Amino acid sequence: MHKVLVVGGAGYIGSHMVKRLGQLGCAVTTLDNLSSGHRDAVLCGDFIHGDLANTALLARLLQPGRFDAVMHFASFIQVGESVQDPAKYYENNVTNTLHLLGAMRAARVNRFIFSSTAATFGEPQYSPIDERHPQQPINPYGRSKLMIEQVLEDYDRAYGLKSVCLRYFNAAGADPDGELGERHEPETHLIPLVLQAASGRRSHISVFGRDYDTPDGTCIRDYIHINDLCEAHWLSLQSLMQGAGSQRYNLGNGQGFSVQAVIEAAQRVTGRTIAVQDAPLREGDPARLVADATLARQQLGWRPQFADLDTLVRHAWAWEQRMAGLT
């Protein structure tokens, strides 16, 4: 039975991971400051309300022998906000993560799974993007994540702290059981925004540009189901527990779906007409962001189970209906 500390386990991805760890028989503890997470999303294990800035709390929590590994989901993630307020991102995503790693070192916890991001790559030089792609982030959010990736390389060499960095492309979908889903404030992800327009919680969905070099002119992104992300974390944990070295993996389905394709899928799944308004291109939006996840498939044996767009949207729609009071 693995003993796992999940930092940020009350958020979107973290809460799904906590549920999965509980199903797998792990002893799971969640640490979350609830700045963007929800206490009722933590469905199993112990919960501690606290912040990574509280080094005394971390020292009490991380005692030798208490945890086998730590999973870190407690980062700020809004690109635009990171440009407007970079200090917030460097303080939380970098400084607070260093606090966590320091407490881990003191407790001799040497396995760490880190939620990284495709934003570490910056503007894509080719697609699909594999692990060899240059990392040249173009915003403080991406830079903050890359900094921790670099810190982890140094900590491995100096202290033997083994880590897996998982670079998500576009996390999407919801718990197939209907117990969990996305509850961001503000919401910035395309699929929940489209479904909020379908449910009536939003008047319309904006399409930012129809002149991209793609088949239908709208941006293409690689959407990965939340449960498939959790499976990649579980396989990464298994790998570290079995003595594997540090690694970095890109996670995606390897196929992209355009904004227009997502809207059409949502209309099929919901049976509702979705109001769409065209808007100007947003600066810095690449035409395509698609992952090459070959390495994760080869080394972890990872296989996405929910790669079909309609299935992904269907799970998200069940959650949106709950949030909108339609069920």
Rank of each mutant, 00 (worst) to 15 (best):
residue 123 E to I: 01
residue 292 D to L: 02
residue 16 H to D: 00
residue 133 H to C: 01
residue 229 L to G: 02
residue 289 L to M: 09
residue 297 R to F: 00
residue 147 M to G: 02
residue 184 H to E: 06
residue 132 R to L: 07
residue 316 A to H: 08
residue 143 R to E: 09
residue 60 R to T: 08
residue 78 Q to P: 06
residue 201 R to V: 04
residue 212 Y to F: 15
residue 94 V to K: 14
residue 82 S to K: 10
residue 182 E to T: 04
residue 7 V to H: 13
residue 115 S to N: 13
residue 38 H to M: 05
residue 285 D to F: 08
residue 306 F to T: 12
residue 224 I to D: 00
residue 166 L to Y: 00
residue 264 E to N: 13
residue 134 P to M: 07
residue 158 A to K: 12
residue 312 L to C: 10
residue 309 L to Y: 14
residue 288 R to H: 08
residue 274 I to K: 09
residue 264 E to T: 10
residue 157 R to W: 10
residue 138 I to V: 15
residue 56 A to I: 01
residue 226 I to F: 15
residue 81 E to T: 12
residue 44 C to K: 03
residue 310 D to Q: 10
residue 82 S to R: 12
residue 123 E to D: 05
residue 226 I to H: 14
residue 201 R to F: 00
residue 215 P to V: 09
residue 164 V to D: 00
residue 288 R to I: 04
residue 312 L to M: 12
residue 148 I to F: 07
residue 210 R to T: 14
residue 116 S to I: 02
residue 3 K to Q: 08
residue 160 G to P: 01
residue 156 D to L: 14
residue 131 E to P: 06
residue 39 R to L: 09
residue 271 G to D: 05
residue 159 Y to M: 13
residue 195 L to Y: 07
residue 294 T to V: 08
residue 86 P to K: 11
residue 280 P to D: 07
residue 316 A to Y: 02
residue 243 G to L: 03
residue 21 L to N: 11
residue 274 I to G: 15
residue 205 I to Y: 11
residue 232 A to Y: 05
residue 265 A to W: 02
residue 16 H to L: 02
residue 273 T to P: 08
residue 267 Q to P: 06
residue 228 D to S: 11
residue 15 S to A: 15
residue 267 Q to C: 11
residue 54 N to C: 09
residue 44 C to Q: 02
residue 280 P to F: 10
residue 326 L to I: 14
residue 78 Q to T: 06
residue 59 A to C: 05
residue 175 D to M: 01
residue 231 E to F: 10
residue 78 Q to M: 04
residue 200 G to D: 05
residue 211 D to S: 15
residue 219 C to A: 15
residue 7 V to R: 12
residue 51 D to K: 10
residue 183 R to Y: 09
residue 165 C to D: 06
residue 101 L to A: 14
residue 310 D to K: 11
residue 302 W to N: 12
residue 218 T to L: 04
residue 239 S to A: 14
residue 280 P to C: 13
residue 152 L to F: 11
residue 291 A to L: 06
residue 190 L to I: 05
residue 26 C to G: 05
residue 102 G to I: 01
residue 272 R to P: 01
residue 282 R to M: 04
residue 70 V to F: 11
residue 216 D to W: 11
residue 169 F to I: 04
residue 167 R to D: 01
residue 114 F to Q: 03
residue 132 R to C: 01
residue 251 L to H: 05
residue 106 A to Q: 15
residue 64 P to Q: 11
residue 186 P to K: 10
residue 107 A to Y: 09
residue 169 F to R: 04
residue 249 Y to R: 08
residue 315 H to C: 13
residue 84 Q to N: 14
residue 43 L to V: 09
residue 111 R to Q: 13
residue 94 V to W: 08
residue 77 I to H: 13
residue 115 S to Q: 12
residue 169 F to V: 00
residue 219 C to I: 04
residue 117 T to N: 00
residue 238 Q to L: 15
residue 6 V to A: 12
